[in-house]
Design a protein around this nucleic acid. Structure first.
Lengths: 112, 112
DNA sequence: TAACGTTATGTATTTACAAATATAACGTAT
DNA sequence: ATACGTTATATTTGTAAATACATAACGTTA
């Protein structure tokens, strides 16, 4: 059994976490379902936890990442903004590149 | 205020954590002091926590990372093995390279 | 106007983790 | 033999985080 390298990256703004893997997963679920409550259910996450995450994201980001509405057709919902889509894409790209980078570094340690 | 990328890397063996930043710091403190208890004090870490970390390291590694002795001159002590020194060096190198890598990736997001 | 499914928020409970405390075992040195 | 400083381990206590539960506010729809 050889050693493995694991990693976590995240983006911060003003010493607050903006995006990590879990937050990106939540935003993608909102994108797929159109609502925060449905997104939370699909991730086996309590609504409150999901709301706190989304609130933290929108407070940390320079521009809104979602537009949330209360009441109306379907009770309301949450929509990812264009800016949000951009952030998700950049995070995924950087994260993927990081994996590739560490995969190269693995050569230095796997046979120790 | 522009966004920042933060990261954590660690080495695993058999799905157990072998080395992360905290563990490497502990090993270096043992190297400097010659004992686990002194290392713990120097890091403001409880002895128990330090012992648990060191125990986990030695149980995860393929070869011993420290040699611990009870009793005798000075009451005993802990010594880093050559293998341990090797692991510390490789971890530090990979970690440093990862910072550099993410510093380049930062260009993609800092102006968003 | 009553019902519905959301967002938004408060409060209590449970769980997990960290910290503190205590003590045994050990092998030199006095 | 006694003292000392260390490794090793168990037990208790305290604190922070996650979870569960409850409820208000809202704007369409029927």
């Amino acid at each position: 059994m050889s050693y493995k390298i694991k990693s976590r990256i995240w983006i911060e703004a003003n010493n607050n976490v903006l995006l990590g893997e879990g937050r990106v997963q939540l935003l993608k679920a909102i994108q797929n379902t159109g609502s925060l409550s449905k997104a939370a259910k699909s991730l086996n996450l309590s609504y409150k936890k999901a709301w706190q995450l989304l609130d933290s994201i929108n407070k940390s980001a320079k521009k809104p990442v979602t537009i949330n509405s209360i009441g109306g057709k379907g009770g309301g919902g949450a929509q990812i903004t264009e800016y949000g889509i951009l952030l998700i894409g950049v995070f995924d790209e950087i994260n993927k590149n990081c994996w590739s980078f560490l995969d190269e570094q693995l050569e230095k340690i796997k046979d120790l």
